[in-house]
Amino acid sequence: LTVQLGNLEWHFDNPEQALKMAEELAKRYQLKVEIDNGTLKFK
């Protein structure tokens, strides 16, 4: 699973870790998370 923020990307083997990080980033920057083809992206 990949977490993508702008041109930064983090790759996780563990989806739970990816979701946890995505939630933290979304909270911190007040963004919405969307999943696009196995990639978590922020809007």
Rank of each mutant, 00 (worst) to 15 (best):
L1A: 07
L1T: 10
L1P: 04
L1I: 13
L1Y: 14
L1C: 10
L1H: 08
L1M: 13
L1S: 05
T2L: 10
T2I: 13
T2K: 12
T2E: 03
T2N: 08
T2H: 07
T2A: 06
T2W: 09
V3K: 01
V3M: 06
V3C: 06
V3T: 02
V3D: 02
V3P: 02
V3I: 12
Q4L: 12
Q4H: 08
Q4S: 08
Q4V: 14
Q4M: 13
Q4C: 04
L5A: 03
L5I: 09
L5K: 01
L5H: 05
L5D: 02
L5M: 08
G6Q: 04
G6N: 06
G6P: 03
G6H: 07
G6I: 04
G6F: 06
G6L: 06
N7S: 13
N7E: 11
N7T: 13
N7F: 11
L8D: 07
L8A: 08
L8M: 15
L8V: 10
L8K: 15
L8I: 12
L8E: 08
L8H: 14
E9G: 03
E9T: 15
E9R: 13
E9F: 14
E9N: 10
E9S: 14
E9V: 15
E9C: 10
W10I: 09
W10L: 09
W10K: 02
W10C: 07
W10R: 02
W10P: 00
W10A: 02
H11E: 04
H11F: 12
H11Q: 06
H11G: 02
H11C: 08
H11T: 08
H11M: 05
H11L: 05
H11R: 08
H11S: 06
F12Q: 00
F12R: 00
F12M: 04
F12A: 01
D13G: 07
D13H: 09
D13F: 07
N14R: 09
N14K: 10
N14Y: 07
N14E: 09
N14F: 07
N14S: 12
P15Q: 09
P15K: 12
P15E: 09
P15I: 14
P15V: 13
P15A: 12
E16V: 13
E16L: 13
E16W: 11
E16R: 09
E16F: 12
E16N: 09
E16T: 10
Q17R: 09
Q17E: 15
Q17F: 10
Q17N: 10
Q17G: 07
Q17C: 08
Q17I: 11
Q17T: 12
Q17S: 11
A18Q: 01
A18K: 00
A18T: 02
A18P: 01
A18H: 00
A18E: 00
A18V: 04
L19R: 07
L19W: 15
L19S: 04
L19G: 02
K20S: 10
K20A: 14
K20N: 09
K20G: 06
K20C: 03
K20I: 10
K20Y: 07
M21N: 01
M21Q: 04
M21R: 03
M21F: 15
M21P: 00
M21E: 03
M21G: 01
M21K: 09
M21H: 10
M21W: 15
A22Y: 03
A22M: 06
A22H: 01
A22V: 06
A22I: 06
A22Q: 01
A22P: 00
E23R: 10
E23I: 12
E23T: 11
E23F: 14
E24L: 14
E24N: 12
E24W: 15
L25T: 01
L25F: 11
L25M: 06
A26H: 03
A26C: 06
A26T: 03
A26L: 06
A26W: 08
A26N: 03
A26Q: 04
K27R: 13
K27L: 12
K27Q: 13
R28G: 02
R28N: 05
R28W: 06
R28T: 07
R28M: 11
R28F: 07
Y29W: 08
Y29H: 07
Y29M: 05
Y29S: 01
Y29N: 03
Q30M: 09
Q30W: 08
Q30Y: 09
Q30T: 06
Q30F: 10
Q30E: 09
L31V: 06
L31P: 00
L31Q: 01
L31H: 02
L31F: 07
L31Y: 06
L31C: 05
K32Q: 12
K32R: 11
K32I: 15
K32W: 08
V33H: 03
V33W: 15
V33M: 10
V33T: 04
V33P: 03
V33D: 01
V33S: 02
V33E: 01
E34R: 03
E34C: 08
E34M: 12
E34T: 12
E34F: 15
I35D: 04
I35W: 14
I35A: 06
I35Y: 14
I35H: 09
I35T: 05
D36F: 12
D36H: 14
D36R: 08
N37G: 14
N37Y: 03
N37E: 10
G38I: 04
G38N: 11
G38R: 05
G38V: 04
G38E: 06
G38T: 07
G38A: 07
T39M: 10
T39I: 15
T39G: 03
T39E: 06
T39P: 00
T39C: 04
T39L: 10
T39F: 13
L40S: 00
L40N: 00
L40A: 03
L40W: 05
L40H: 01
K41H: 09
K41R: 11
K41F: 09
K41T: 14
K41I: 14
K41C: 08
K41V: 13
K41S: 09
K41W: 09
F42R: 00
F42I: 14
F42C: 04
F42E: 01
F42M: 11
F42A: 01
F42W: 04
F42Q: 01
F42G: 02
F42L: 15
K43W: 12
K43S: 14
K43F: 14
K43P: 05
K43Y: 15
K43E: 08
K43L: 13
K43R: 13
